[in-house]
């Protein structure tokens, strides 16, 4: 859980970003502490994936700043983004490149991680030979295989069956507890943000419109989170 005395593992300060003159993020700030999980929720297209890409350095913000305590950062891509011409094992090996592990340690780490996401039998399969959910889990395994200090999850449980979702959520909780990792999870899935998050921010039209605990989300009278959590058609997000 968050400890105010610590310095944040990652901090976004007043991030602005436009694409082709269209503002997507208009001043987003938050911080995440080691051992804490922040969930980012919000309507489709509001810039959630964009903020994750800015946090891990794939995109430059137009203004604002990202302060990280480490470059050791893992990202689970929304679209898996596995390397097509490499097997599951090779995809994970790439993530472990430059970690100076012995061959045996590397192999063990890969097997352990894949076993935890239920893919122990798919070591030598190519991404095209996997189902969508299996690709998603491989992508998850690839992001966490080297135990990064900061982990960004872009819809890690979307497209998974309920049992597998629970397994992935448990794994996320375990990583947070055992490794004291700082996590940010973008998700539409109710179980994921209620189970894994310590804190939630809700985005709309490029800004943070609500912040709170998972327990507060359902009962909050904030119009945005009310509409979102109760899946109402009427509300301030009509233009989303």
């Amino acid at each position: 859980m968050a400890q105010a005395a610590e310095t944040p593992a990652i901090k976004a300060v007043d991030i602005h970003k436009s694409f082709d003159g269209r503002p997507i993020l208009r001043g987003v700030s938050f911080e995440v502490y080691p051992g804490e999980t922040l969930a980012i929720i919000g309507p489709s297209g509001c810039g959630k994936s964009t903020i994750l890409k800015i946090l891990c350095g794939l995109l430059e913000p137009d203004s604002g700043e990202v302060i990280k305590e480490t470059h050791d950062i893992g990202l689970v891509f929304q679209g898996s983004a596995l390397l097509n011409s490499y097997t599951v094992r090779e995809n994970l090996q790439l993530a472990l490149r430059g970690r100076k592990l012995s061959k045996a340690d590397e192999e063990e780490q890969i097997r352990k991680t894949l076993a935890l996401v239920g893919l122990a039998d798919h070591l030598d399969h190519y991404p095209s030979e996997l189902s969508g959910g299996q690709q998603k889990r491989t992508s998850f395994a690839r992001a966490v295989v080297y135990n990064p200090r900061i982990i960004l999850y872009d819809e890690p449980t979307t497209g998974l069956d309920p049992v597998m979702s629970t397994i992935i959520e448990d794994y996320m909780i375990e990583l947070e507890r055992e490794l004291h990792a700082a996590s940010i999870v973008v998700t539409h899935q109710y179980s994921t943000w209620t189970r894994t998050a310590d804190r939630i921010i809700m985005m709309h039209a490029g800004r943070i419109v609500w912040t709170g605990d998972p327990s507060e989300a359902v009962d909050s009278d904030n119009a945005y989170i009310y509409q979102f959590a109760h899946a109402k058609r009427e509300g301030p997000m009509l233009d989303a």
């Binding site: 794939l58 950062i73 790439l94 490149r97």
Partner: peptide, 20 residues
């Protein structure tokens, strides 16, 4: 064609995140 596909499916981004 291969590299374009890798670009649009974010495989190149994935490499960068893995610091390759």
């Amino acid at each position: 064609a291969e590299l374009t596909t890798m670009m649009i499916t974010e495989q190149i981004d994935a490499l960068q995140v893995m610091r390759i």
